[in-house]
Design a protein around this nucleic acid. Structure first.
Length: 480
RNA sequence: GGCGCCAUGGUGUAACUGGUUAACACGCCGCCCUCUCAAGGCGGAGAGUUCGGGUUCGAUCCCCGAUGGCGCUACCA
């Protein structure tokens, strides 16, 4: 592939908030697209709204991308450091007559908009400054009068573009107002800076949220005015909450880091996100689990859906269990250690034991948090008994004394393996005239504090003789 | 309000250029397995494709209209 045909794409978040779910998916699609074609992904920070942008948010966005494993090839570039480019672009547009100075003040504009609304007219800019003579305008500007630069939208006709997802999209020019390119303080608006940057960065494909469809004709108009070729636009449908309104804080977590904090594994989140609004096609319709490499290989703009998608937490949770189960214990350990840190928990087991215990537990973990909460008893002697579990399997005094007695049997046993642990328990149950299940269920609670756990004898194997004996001997004192 | 876009079970999606008992996954229900809970295996409920018109021998698929949802409508991005 020659460099001329190698795609160059970008992710261009505005640092007015953390990396949210929708932004993350846009980033993911751009990344997938770039990696699929061996192209270049550029990270551009759109921080021209100084009021709302902050370095903290930039860091948050970078953290989110790293967590998802999305690396970029160029940047991050900051629009706040590229103001000269935008001013020069505005000058070009001014010089070619595609833009003009506007001396209307914000207050005047607002008042006229209110009047228009009251009269039932569309609240568009009335273009009054468009008729000001060039020389007059430059004179007024030179005299120190504040002015913005507006784009002169053609009077009639339509502006259209071919979208890789939506097909041909067309707008009547009469519907597009003479939008502001450069604010009176010399700071560009989004409309100008995107075009100037997308052009300057030689981007070939613009993959972004569908909320930008209506903005696109304003950009197309500038490309034409500048005599530039259009990139390929690909608008991605939005992600909605369960009530089908745009995903927002009302729906709970919207920042990707919040999902990390909730104990979600990044591969699960990425897989889930990739299939929200995109499908690898019918040949793969029976498959749901896709590795990063699979996704890169399969990704294509053709598979992007046109309709908005609802974010489904249940499905995410399912992916999480699938991925946790598939993890190697040694790769899972660092993630679990992070959770332990969050909970201020220190395991009291050796490294080998920890790994084999993770191996035992991971098939039934739903979430990384489980390792620091419900699975505590496997890693430390300080753990809580779940009242419901005690009430269900240990409420009987007789059962508890039998467990204490069972502990003694184990203590005296010459061998303590999963096999012998089971033999001993079952023969003890026979001898005592109780069902093995009673002792098994009771022992599980005595050993783990939980009613839910892996096979009891596997648990015993993981805990080791000393702990098993010790915890069973304390069974008499457990109360609900 | 204006303009634009979209519309398949509760959710995500599939159904080659119109011909299928409308498929898969999540979720839900039941059964099996079983020492609990997951997992796993098996089975089930749940959409006639938003609605109404066309075109056609035949429409999820093409056309028109309606409805609904979403987006844009700033000197925000």
């Amino acid at each position: 592939m020659t460099s001329a045909t190698t795609p160059r794409v970008r992710f261009a978040p505005s640092p007015t908030g953390y990396l949210h779910v929708g932004g993350a998916r846009t980033a993911l699609f751009n990344w997938l697209f770039a990696r699929h074609f061996g192209g270049t992904l550029i990270l551009r920070i759109e921080d021209t709204d100084f009021e709302r942008s902050s370095q903290e948010m930039v860091e948050g966005i970078l953290t989110g991308m790293r967590w998802l494993g999305l690396n970029w090839d160029e940047g991050p570039f900051y629009q706040s450091q590229r103001l000269d480019l935008y001013r020069a672009t505005a000058e070009k547009l001014l010089a070619s007559g595609h833009a003009y100075h506007c001396f209307c003040t914000k207050a005047e504009l607002e008042q006229r908009r209110a009047e228009a609304a009251a009269a039932g007219r569309p609240p568009m800019y009335d273009r009054r400054c468009r008729s000001i003579e060039r020389s007059v305008a430059t004179g007024r500007k030179a005299a120190g009068e504040a002015c913005a630069v507006r784009f002169a939208v053609p009077d009639g006709g339509t502006t259209s573009f071919e979208d890789a997802v939506f097909g041909r999209v067309e707008f009547a020019n009469a519907e597009i107002e003479d939008f502001v390119l450069l604010r009176s303080d010399g700071i560009p608006t989004y409309h100008l800076s995107v075009v100037a940057d997308d052009l300057d960065m030689r981007l070939t494909h613009i993959i972004r949220g569908a909320d930008h469809i209506s903005n696109t004709p304003k950009q197309v108009l500038q490309y034409r005015a500048l005599g530039a070729e259009l990139p390929v636009f690909a608008h991605v449908p939005l992600i909605l909450g369960p009530d089908k309104t745009r995903l927002s804080k009302r729906h709970g977590a919207t920042s990707v880091i919040a999902y990390k904090d909730m104990g979600i594994v990044p591969e699960a989140f990425r897989n889930f996100l990739a299939l929200l609004g995109w499908t690898p096609g019918s040949e793969h319709k029976d498959k749901e689990i896709f590795s990063s490499d699979d996704l890169i290989q399969l990704f294509s703009l053709d598979g992007i859906s046109k309709s908005n998608a609802v974010f489904n937490n249940d499905k995410l949770a399912w992916y999480n269990t699938e991925y946790i189960r598939a993890y190697d214990a040694k790769n899972l350990l660092p993630l679990i250690e992070e959770e332990w840190k969050v909970f201020n928990f220190t395991p009291e087991r050796g490294p080998e034991e920890i790994l084999s215990t993770i191996e035992l537990l991971k098939p039934r973990a739903r979430n990384l948090k489980d390792f620091a909460t419900t699975f505590r008893a496997y890693f430390s002697d300080s753990f809580e008994f779940e009242p419901a579990a005690v009430a269900k399997f240990l409420k009987d005094d007789a059962t508890r004394s039998l467990l204490v007695e069972l502990g003694k049997r184990y203590e005296q046993a010459p061998e303590f393996t999963e096999y012998w642990a089971e033999q001993i328990l079952r023969s003890f149950a026979d001898e005592s005239g109780v069902k093995a299940g009673v002792l098994i269920n009771g022992a599980r609670v005595a050993l783990t504090g939980q009613a839910v756990a892996p096979s009891l004898f596997a648990v015993m194997g993981a805990l080791g003789k000393a702990r098993v004996v010790n915890r069973l001997s304390g069974a008499g004192k457990i109360s609900a």
